[in-house]
Nucleic acid binder design. Structure first.
Lengths: 137, 137
DNA sequence: CGGTATCCAGAACGATACTG
DNA sequence: CAGTATCGTTCTGGATACCG
């Protein structure tokens, strides 16, 4: 007797462990940025650094490496001098684009999440939670 | 051969700061899980704990609070005894569902990212990067 | 130019104990 | 039942220095 208007396939018993991992993939502070940059095509290390000035070599390398290990970016290093390395998205990362797209749309719509719910709160029971003053985290 | 088929609005010059933030919203270790559970409707604290056994009260509370501050969940506390608190998604969170859906689909398709690309890697330049054996992270 | 190694600060996480 | 408080641990991110 399901009454909670269960939607698609999400179960109330077990969430998707894969989903968790997928979320984890993009959790890095710069992963999103990097991936986003990579959407525009191949990029060299220096290019990425210029594109994302706030990131350090260490972080860029780390995150890039992480993404590589996750099979989201392909690294092509040319053993020549001066050294040149190019990064590009893998098919898997490309399949990830719709996610980015949706997320981007959402971020655009709710760019500024507001503390107050835009809809009428249904205090069916008639008493409001005393959401007193909570020292914003 | 179109260069990556530029889609929506992603620019190669400036990534979306909002996107970054949006990604950050789901970065918590349990945020995804919690939100996923909440899709099924209202949930009590204990229910969430039962649904996600690996999470501690502390974490559940923290993440839940975080989500609340971000305007993604609404907390309804009934000042009665025994205490009862129900959590539910806000419209904003509901709008986030497509993202979850896409992410879920992606996670399902690439559930197990394999080291070897299922497609032929285009080493156009002809030389493979000596991605010898790297001691996994 | 591209990358690694070491050190370090801070946040995130987790376990336990205690309160209303 | 729901939540807070404190502690310690792990992880992440950043600065500097050095190597190919």
């Amino acid at each position: 007797m399901k009454k909670q208007t269960n939607g698609p396939d999400h179960a109330d018993c077990t969430a998707a462990p894969q989903l968790q991992r997928a979320l984890r993939v993009l959790s890095g502070k710069w992963k999103g940025e990097i991936l986003w940059q990579l959407v525009g095509g191949k990029r060299r290390f220096g290019e990425l650094r210029r594109a994302i000035p706030d990131v350090t070599q260490h972080m860029l390398t780390t995150q890039l490496r992480d993404l590589e290990n996750e099979g989201l970016v392909k690294r092509t290093v040319f053993p020549e001098v001066p050294p040149r390395v190019e990064y590009e998205m893998t098919p898997a990362a490309r399949d990830l684009r719709p996610v980015f797209d949706e997320l981007s749309r959402w971020a655009n719509a709710h760019g500024r999440l507001e503390p107050a719910s835009p809809v009428a709160d249904d205090d069916a029971d008639g008493r409001r939670a005393g959401s007193s003053d909570r020292p914003a985290r």
